[in-house]
Computed example of a mutant assay.
Amino acid sequence: MALSATIYKTEINIADNDRSYYGSHAVTVARHPSETEERLMIRILAYALYENGDEMLTFTRGLSEADEPDLWRRDLTGTILQWIETGLPDERRLLKACGRAGQVVVLSYGRNAATWWANTAGKLERARNLKVYVLPVESTQKLAALAGRNMILHFNVQDGTVWVSSDKGEADIEIKALN
């Protein structure tokens, strides 16, 4: 019998001073059986960083579906405006995504992120609609510690740094652009 996804209900409060976006969102996120809480929380972080109130940014089936990112923004015709990946995706996957979407964003994390980028950067030079960021390991581990099945998370963004707080504690994440 296959394991089923674990459901996380989250209230996300966003105060993004860099984009002048302020909003609250109730989201339900499914955690794949093979997914860590760190990856789940980075997907929620990505939502907070790219939600803009148009209600077109959605979580996808992610790990369960090979042809979908972690999040995407599609218009009413189904055209993919934004494709958002977390982790260390394969360069072929990213090049394919760049052909399908108006903008592709990667939030890379983990101890091997620098090595992954060193091996991948040259292969992605022609991808003009790709933005790659790295998240510090210590910060993403602190973010993972905030995970819970029912969460209220507050995201404050200013000058490329995100402060996340909940009843379990807080984490600060400096987002560094790699390209």
Score class of each variant (00 low, 15 high):
A147Y: 10
A118V: 01
S24E: 10
G102W: 00
L153H: 08
F155P: 01
H154C: 07
T77C: 04
A171D: 12
G23W: 04
S165V: 13
A171E: 10
E11V: 13
A127F: 13
E85A: 04
D172C: 12
L107F: 10
F59A: 06
A113C: 02
A114C: 01
G62L: 00
T6W: 14
L143K: 01
F59R: 03
L146R: 09
Y21M: 03
Q141S: 06
T28Q: 13
K9V: 13
E35N: 03
V162Q: 06
D159P: 07
W83F: 01
V157Y: 05
K168E: 13
T60G: 05
K168H: 13
G148H: 11
I44D: 11
M1L: 15
M56V: 03
N119T: 15
N150V: 11
K168L: 15
S4Y: 14
A2W: 10
T36M: 00
L94Q: 00
Q158C: 13
H154N: 15
L57S: 11
L146W: 08
R74Y: 00
F59P: 02
K96H: 11
K123C: 08
A101K: 03
S165G: 14
L178T: 08
R92F: 07
A147V: 04
R128N: 15
H25W: 06
V27D: 08
V132G: 06
I152C: 15
T10F: 11
K142F: 00
Q158W: 14
Y133I: 09
I44P: 10
I173L: 14
S64C: 03
A127R: 11
V134Y: 05
E125R: 15
A121P: 05
Y133P: 04
L57T: 08
